[in-house]
């Protein structure tokens, strides 16, 4: 197990190197000069040259690449061109807000989605099943900005149950609507996946055997069927966690939530290369870690999975 984890961690090195290289190339081919943007609508060429030199943009591209690799290896992602803030500080500060939002959204999604999926499968073709699946299909199809706006208009601006948008200095009431908005889609997805996995497992011979043995339906579903249906559900859950932790631009924009998604979009608009690069590397790391955790969790769910 330990050697498997170490091996996986070692694999992350070439993956991160690949990401760093691709990111560097892509960002440098995007048109738009960050130094020029800093000048505003007009500026003189002498100042532009000085700013470019300060940013290291006057160096040959290969030298910029090696400098970037060297800095990343040292854990230094540089400073934002736009605000001069350390990229690591900016990312960690925004990640705190994103993490808080994503964590609650995924808890909500897992609780609602998996529960609804299991009940739907057990009570297949019942009124609950039909209603849950209609809601799930709507949840997967509904655009995030539409859900967010609707929730805000209803609960914050008409019923006045929620104080408003923003981070609210950590007040939990500000968390409710963005969590629901962000959680709707993964919850719907999880409900559909859980239902189909459960239905497949429930039709297996060993479930029939368990029932024939006279085990209570609660035990058959909970101990024998649900655990075996979990592997694809966990895989989907893992990708959803990675997605949500990488920032949810639309939800963050609508709810004025100071997360990583908004930071990245602003960086893209303003060609803030260090923030763009740092953000993508950060997201890549989140995906790698989340995938590793998901892979490790398979062993706990299914004893047949071995890591040797």
């Amino acid at each position: 197990m330990l050697s498997y984890i170490l091996r996986r961690l070692l694999y992350t090195i070439p993956v991160v190197w690949g990401v760093v290289t691709v990111v560097f190339i892509l960002i440098n081919v995007v048109p738009g000069d960050p130094a020029r943007l800093m000048l505003g609508q007009r500026g003189d060429p002498a100042t532009l040259a000085k700013i470019r030199s300060d940013m290291g943009l006057d160096l040959p591209i290969y030298q910029q690449y090696f400098n970037f690799l060297r800095d990343v290896a040292k854990g230094d992602l540089g400073k934002s061109y736009r605000s001069n803030e350390q990229v690591t500080t900016a990312l960690l500060e925004r990640f705190k807000a994103t993490f808080r939002l994503a964590l609650w959204a995924i808890i909500l999604a897992a609780l609602v989605g998996i529960t609804a999926g299991v009940i739907s499968a057990v009570k297949q073709y019942s009124a609950f099943d039909y209603s849950a699946m209609i809601i799930a299909i709507s949840g997967v199809s509904a655009p995030v900005f539409w859900v967010g706006l609707l929730l805000l208009l209803a609960f914050a601006y008409n019923l006045n149950w929620i104080p408003g948008v923003g981070y609210g200095d950590g007040d939990w009431r500000y968390l409710i609507l963005p969590v629901i908005t962000l959680g709707v889609r993964p919850a719907a997805l999880l409900a559909r996946i859980t239902r189909s996995c459960m239905l497949e497992v429930l039709s297996q011979d060993y479930v029939r055997t368990a029932r024939a043995k006279g085990l209570a339906e609660r035990v058959v579903v909970g101990r024998h069927a649900f655990r075996n249906a979990l592997i694809p559900v966990i895989t989907i859950l893992g990708t959803q966690i990675s997605d949500l932790l990488s920032g949810a631009v639309l939800t963050e924009t609508i709810f004025a939530w100071p997360g990583i998604g908004r930071l990245e979009v602003e960086a893209l608009i303003n060609r803030d290369f260090p923030i763009m690069r740092g953000g993508i590397i950060f997201m890549a790391l989140i995906f790698l870690v989340a995938n590793l955790i998901v892979d490790l969790s398979y062993g706990f769910i299914d004893p047949r999975v071995r890591y040797d």
Binding site: L149, L152, L153, A156, Y157, N160, P163, G164, V165, G166, T253, I254, F255, A256, P258, R262
Partner: peptide
């Protein structure tokens, strides 16, 4: 200085007195 990126939400926040 309060930062709200979406104009529709900003207008609603104004109406709410925020």
């Amino acid at each position: 200085i309060v930062v709200i990126p979406d104009p529709t939400i900003t207008y609603e926040e104004y109406k709410k007195g925020n």
